[in-house]
Design a protein around this nucleic acid. Structure first.
Lengths: 201, 201
DNA sequence: CATGGCGTGATACAGATGTATCATGCGAAT
DNA sequence: ATTCGCATGATACATCTGTATCACGCCATG
């Protein structure tokens, strides 16, 4: 009955159950028992495959980050070959906005983690601040390339522009989650700003 | 010993105790008992002055909103008389960034409420989406005025620009709370963008 | 076949949490 | 002076939470 189950697969199954709860009901509803039920396993199993709740939360957060990264890679590739700076920048920024079910799920789940992460400076450094920094550096590089290709005004500072764009997308995402506007509206606002930034289409 | 205590004052005292906890330890640490202790009153009093915990949370959130609004009014006024569009816009946007103790407190506390509010669509409509909408409309009006005064390129769309700026400030605030950059850095980025937006100082 | 360790279920436990209950005191109105 | 109602303290209660314990069955290895 039990041909030595696949640990990693089990862990994935349970962690994704947590992410599903975090997405739909928030992290405060993600008790060990709730996760177990959602994953269709017993409470004991959740305990068995993860030492503690914090371990589970962290593992799930790591997986969430990987999902976002995979999505971004997919969008960058779909932006066309060979990759142009403008296409890459547009892909990276717009793939974060909650415009389709997957991005809505990812964004909402990140939002559920937000308060939790802010309270734990240690987790913050590992998951919260690292990835944005890398992303921002990547964006800066793309913008600088576009600028050297004459597609962006020389007056612009790539660092400042990248930081501004990333922050804007973040804020736009929040406003969508808050029901202030639709994902399409947010995307339109982003597109408009990119149109003004790039001199050539 | 008890000359008919001032209800409103009591409620304020308790609600601010909650906000203090939300700021420093997050909302998940804001139990009724913790709030009572922080406020220096008995658990029973917290129950007495607020029907339920949800009532307390909502009341405190309302007060937080009022505090932010008051801060904004103060910053707008301090921007100089008579108020110029650029001064007003700069004041509104920069007063949201976590650059001083008060704004850090307000921003952190809002962040603590963020996940909670997202899960409750009813509260969302009343507190979460209303205020930003008003603020965005106000910003749009100021930008349009500046545009008609020739201080902003006619090519800009005030609506889009206002939404983008507000979202950017929101995102910058998040990045500061996440420890990705300092409040001064965030303010510098905002200033840089405003310098590019406005044709005249 | 024996045996030991891994996987899993049932259950226990201690603590926290929101809320309710009971009782008492004090001040004001009658 | 009596009475009524607001204010407050002490305590109880049911529930939920993370975690720990105990026991049993299955598999592979000796």
């Amino acid at each position: 009955m039990n041909p030595r189950p696949d640990h990693e697969e089990r862990r994935r199954q349970i962690a994704e159950a947590l992410l599903r709860i975090a997405d739909t009901q928030g992290l405060q509803s993600a008790s060990m028992r709730a996760v177990a039920t959602e994953a269709g396993v017993s409470l004991r199993l959740v305990q068995y495959y993860f030492e503690s709740k914090q371990g589970l939360l962290l593992d799930a957060l790591t997986r969430l980050g990987a999902q976002l990264q995979a999505r971004m890679a997919r969008w960058i590739e779909a932006a066309g070959t060979p990759p142009t700076p403008r296409g890459t920048v547009t892909a990276v920024l717009s793939c974060i906005l909650p415009t389709d079910p997957e991005s809505r799920r990812i964004t909402r789940t990140y939002a559920a983690y937000y308060a939790l992460v802010l309270g734990d400076p240690e987790v913050l450094e590992k998951h919260g601040a690292q990835q944005p920094r890398i992303l921002e550096a990547f964006l800066t590089k793309q913008l600088r390339a576009a600028q050297q290709a004459g597609q962006i005004s020389p007056a612009k500072d790539p660092d400042t522009t990248a930081a501004g764009l990333l922050a804007m997308v973040n804020g736009l995402g929040s406003s969508v989650l808050a029901g202030q506007r639709t994902g399409e509206d947010a995307l339109a606002i982003l597109t408009r700003h990119l149109d003004e930034l790039f001199l050539t289409p």
